[in-house]
Every structure is written in C-alpha cells, then in structure tokens.
Write a protein that binds this DNA or RNA. Sequence first.
DNA 1: TTGCTATTTCTATAATTATCGAAATAATAC
DNA 2: GTATTATTTCGATAATTATAGAAATAGCAA
Lengths: 101, 101
Amino acid sequence: MKYTTSMNIEIAKEERLAQIFSALGEPNRIKIIKILRDSKRELTCSEISNLLQIAPSTVSYHFKALRKAGLTKTRQEAQTKYLSLNKKTFKKYLPGFLDSL
Amino acid sequence: MKYTTSMNIEIAKEERLAQIFSALGEPNRIKIIKILRDSKRELTCSEISNLLQIAPSTVSYHFKALRKAGLTKTRQEAQTKYLSLNKKTFKKYLPGFLDSL
DNA sequence: TTGCTATTTCTATAATTATCGAAATAATAC
DNA sequence: GTATTATTTCGATAATTATAGAAATAGCAA
C-alpha cells in the first residue's frame, strides 16, 4: 500500500501542522508555492531551478519536502516530473492562505 | 525607537512569511498557540513550562521566536511576563487559521 | 539584607537544514 | 549501442535549531 497523507497514521494534529509549517518556513519554498499558484500550468524541477537560480538538486530537495508535507502533487511524464499544488491540504490546514499569498 | 514588526523594514513578503512559518514549525510552538487561543487569560513562561513539561529556558526560547515573528504580545507585570496572541498577524498572514486550529 | 520567584542569557550539544557538486538513475533520441 | 536530458541520491559542509542546566537579572517579601 502506498502511503498518502490522508491516511493519517497516528500523527497528532500539532505534529502535522508543524510539518506543514516547517515545509513552508523557507523563502524559496514560499516562492515555489507562489509560482505554482500563479502558473496556469504545472512546473518542473529545472524550470524552478532556472527561475529561482538555485541548483537542481536543491530544488529537488525542496520539492521532496513540499510533497512529503502534502502541499504539492506530482505527475510524471517520461523523465520529467510536473509539480502542482495540492489544494486540499491548503484548504484543510491553511484556509484562505493561498488567496492571501 | 523600538522595533516593531509592523514597521516592516524592507523584508520581502516571502521572508516575512517564512519567518512566521518557521516560528510555527515546531509542535511545542503550535501547542503554545493553541493553549493561548483557548485560554481566557494570558499565560506565563512557567505555566507553559509546567503544562508542556519542558524547561523554562526552552519555553523562553520559544516565546522569543513567537514574539519576534509577531505572533504574540507580551505584557509585563513585576517579574512576570504575560503572553497573549497577536491576532492582527494571524489575520493578516494566516486568515482563518486560528479558527481551524 | 536575605531569600524566593520569574524570566532571560549563556554554554554546550545533538540534531536538522539548506546548499552545492558529483555520481547515479532512468527515459528519450539518435 | 551512445549521447542527451531530467531528476534524485550521495557526500560534504556551514548554518541553524531545540534542548537543558547554570548563571545572571530583577522584582517582591520578610
């Protein structure tokens, strides 16, 4: 069985929230979220790498943290992974935030 | 002149948000916020220390981070400092969050 | 003054983080 | 097959974090 955040395996709500806030507690991550919100399409690791001028490996690291926190989703097509927001999580834990960003 | 967060000294919005999220990215800090939200009165360092069973110096450290992020306010009375939420910040950067907590 | 209480600062430490470059993985194109 | 492209993992590192205990600060009470 694949792990999904909605399975909620005994994580206290404070832990879950802390995980989400930690994932967002870095300026580049906020920028990624903002870019995704404003973009009409999904974005890739290398696109973000170019936009933010940080190494692909660093972007991959941020992507992983955001995904682990349930804030983003990934769609794979060949070698390329397309990132988009997981709006459900924002709605559930940070209602109104995306609009205020 | 005393520094206040509302002075907003050239901090990009992403930096400001990252500061807030960092401050909230730790379970004990979330608990402190929750306790303050539910409490009818202000709370002190030693009260939180007892409630959460962590050292006063650690609580003081968390208090400082929350205050620096503009999430709490402090009222001093003799040696005692009373903490309460700074709802303005929550409203501005995390609308709806306190209610969903 | 001496002692008690509340908080902060200091010192130390173990853990985590953000970052990069290099190597590994994997799909595509020739 | 080789070469190219996209991403991830690994190794290293410098910075930050959460924690506690000890010492410092400061008000209050006998």
